[in-house]
Amino acid sequence: MASTASKSPRLLTWFTTSMIIFWLMIAIGPFVWTVWGSFKVQGDFFSKADWRNAIYGFYTLSETGGSFTGNGYYGAWIQEEFWRNVLNTTIVVVCTVIISLTLGTLGGYALARSGYRYAFWLLIAALVFRAMPHITLVSGYLLPFFEWNIWGRLSTTIVVLVAINQPFTLWMLHSFFLNIPKDMDESAMVDGCTRFQAFWHVIIPVMWPGVITTGLFSFLLAYNDFAITSMLLSSENQTMVPKIASFLTQIREQGNVMFAVSAVVSAMVPLFFLVLFFQRQIVSGLTAGAVKG
């Protein structure tokens, strides 16, 4: 209802609109610029002389004969075998999400339904664990993992990522479970279900939105991780992010920046679609912890 009181002066509207437009340019501009530039040659991507070259592809045209080139992508995916890293990332991320959701739903359900004091303290402990910088944990893993000879494997990294994901997953799922009325599982148990049957047949079917949202965040954590994957994976098992980091050292030696640019754009694409399709879930997930917890 628009009452006279909520009508806004024109100056304020003008100010906020321009602020939002400015923010949008900052937020999305760098991505657009880099995606566009990834189809050019280096001389255009870093076009010091005239920035319009980056848009029209002056050097791209003279070097390759077209305004767009896929050379960077060819170099990254085929020559540098970036597809291997993409495959590794897929394995790591899928396994991490599935395992952490399994553990997290069980634990989060228990925490939401316990009602005892220790459940509260477990959540606080999880919060403290959530605050640990990942790299400090890595310095704890490295030596034992070398000794036991399990360093460098995808499976080790998956287990570590699952564990590091747990505090966050527990918090989020716990707050989603709190939203589901207790009567549901209690009445199922009155009808003769065990606790686990009530959990599995009654609660989980209505929990899907929460599970999907939490899954998205586990995905992001595993996909975006740098500290753990770069330290715990051997070079043949590297996922995308550490591979891109190692491109950086290569660039200094060989100067093929466009390989790294194409790899960066390739790694961005799944995230772009993730936001496109799951925007609502991401927003609800970010606020779930805040509003209820």
Partner: peptide, 18 residues
């Protein structure tokens, strides 16, 4: 909101590089 989410969602290393 879609556009605003991108800087946060993107991998920190990649966002930094861009």
């Amino acid at each position: 909101i879609f556009a605003s989410l991108l800087p946060m969602i993107v991998t920190p290393l990649i966002g930094g590089l861009i």
